[in-house]
C-alpha cells in the first residue's frame, strides 16, 4: 500500500498544452475556464496548435488571448465573426475560431454572426451563453430568461417591454451556410467531455471546408447570479436547460 503513483508513466490527465501557464482571471466556478480547457484539449488532440488562430471578444473572456497558447486577436465588441472572416479568407488553410459571450454574439454582434454563418465561413464560433453581462456587472443580456433578474431588469425580465430571450443558435441553424450547430454545457465531467467532442467535430469539419460551425455552451455566472458555483449549476439545470435544451440543433445531413 501507499505506493507512489505520481510519476510520469502514470500520468492520465493534465492541463492542455494549448493553454498557457497564466492563471485565469475568471470568478471561482465560472464555466469559462472549463470551456477554454475543452477547446484547448480539442486543439491538442487534433495537433493543430500551430495552425490555429483564435479571436477573443469583448466581455468576460476579453483576456482569453492570455490563456489559449495559440496566436490570438482581440476583436471589437461583437465583431469577432467579421475578424475571423478576414483571417480565414487570407489564410484559408488555418483553423480559425471565435470565442464569444451572449452580449457580444447575440446583441451587438448579431449582424456579424448571422452573415458569417450565412456565408458559410469556415470558422468555429464558440458561444458562451450564461444569460447575463458578466464583465460589466450583471446587466440583462439578449439571452436573459423571462422573469430573470439582472441589474437592468431588477424586477425580472419583462417580455412586454424588454423583449424575448433570443435563441440565436436555433436562428443561425436555419441558415444554409451553417453546417453544424450544437448546444452543450461544461458543468459536469460528462457534459464537459461532450463539449470537447463537439469542438473536435467542428474543427474537423473546418478542415473539410464544410461551412460555419457553432458550438453553444450554456454556462453559469455565479457572481452575477449571486449564487455559489454549485447552486448556479443547479439553477442552470432547472432554468436555463428547459429554455436552451442541450443537444444538436443542426447536424450534417
Amino acid at each position: 500500500m501507499a505506493e507512489n503513483l505520481i510519476k510520469p508513466e502514470n500520468l492520465v490527465y493534465e492541463k492542455s498544452k494549448s493553454m498557457t501557464e497564466r492563471e485565469l482571471h475568471y470568478c471561482p466556478g465560472c464555466g469559462h475556464g472549463t470551456a477554454h480547457r475543452m477547446l484547448a484539449e480539442a486543439i491538442d488532440d487534433l495537433d493543430i496548435q500551430g495552425e490555429t488562430i483564435g479571436i477573443a471578444p469583448v466581455g468576460c473572456s476579453v483576456l482569453a488571448y492570455y490563456y489559449f497558447d495559440v496566436d490570438m486577436l482581440e476583436a471589437a465588441h461583437g465583431r469577432a465573426p467579421a475578424v475571423a472572416t478576414g483571417i480565414k479568407r487570407v489564410l484559408p488553410e488555418k483553423y480559425v475560431f471565435t470565442y464569444q459571450g451572449d452580449g457580444d454574439l447575440a446583441a451587438i454582434g448579431t449582424a456579424e454572426t448571422i452573415h458569417a454563418c450565412n456565408r458559410g465561413e469556415n470558422i468555429l464560433i464558440v458561444f458562451i451563453n450564461n444569460g447575463i453581462y458578466g464583465m460589466t456587472g450583471g446587466q440583462m443580456a439578449p439571452t436573459t430568461l423571462e422573469n430573470m433578474k439582472s441589474t437592468t431588469s431588477p424586477r425580472g425580465r419583462d417580455i412586454k417591454t424588454m423583449g424575448n430571450p433570443l435563441k440565436i443558435s436555433e436562428l443561425v441553424a436555419e441558415l444554409p451556410g451553417t453546417y453544424y450547430a450544437t448546444r452543450h454545457s461544461v458543468h459536469t465531467p460528462a457534459n464537459a467531455r461532450k463539449t470537447k467532442r463537439a469542438f473536435k467535430k467542428a474543427l474537423e469539419y473546418q478542415k473539410e471546408n464544410k461551412g460555419t460551425c457553432l458550438v453553444e455552451v450554456v454556462s453559469n455566472c455565479p457572481s452575477n447570479w449571486k449564487m455559489t458555483p454549485a447552486e448556479s449549476n443547479k439553477w442552470m439545470e432547472e432554468n436555463m436547460f428547459p429554455f436552451y435544451p442541450l443537444g444538436d440543433i443542426k447536424t450534417p445531413k
Binding site: 486577436l73 472572416t85 483571417i87 480565414k88 456579424e112
Partner: peptide
C-alpha cells in the same frame, strides 16, 4: 487577391483588422 462584399462597413473594417493582423 481576395475580394468580399461585407454585410456592412462595420464588418468590412473588422475583416480588414483580421487580415491586417495576419500581416496581409
Amino acid at each position: 487577391m481576395v475580394v468580399l462584399q461585407a454585410e456592412s462597413e462595420v464588418a468590412a473594417i473588422n475583416m480588414i483588422y483580421g487580415a491586417a493582423g495576419c500581416g496581409k
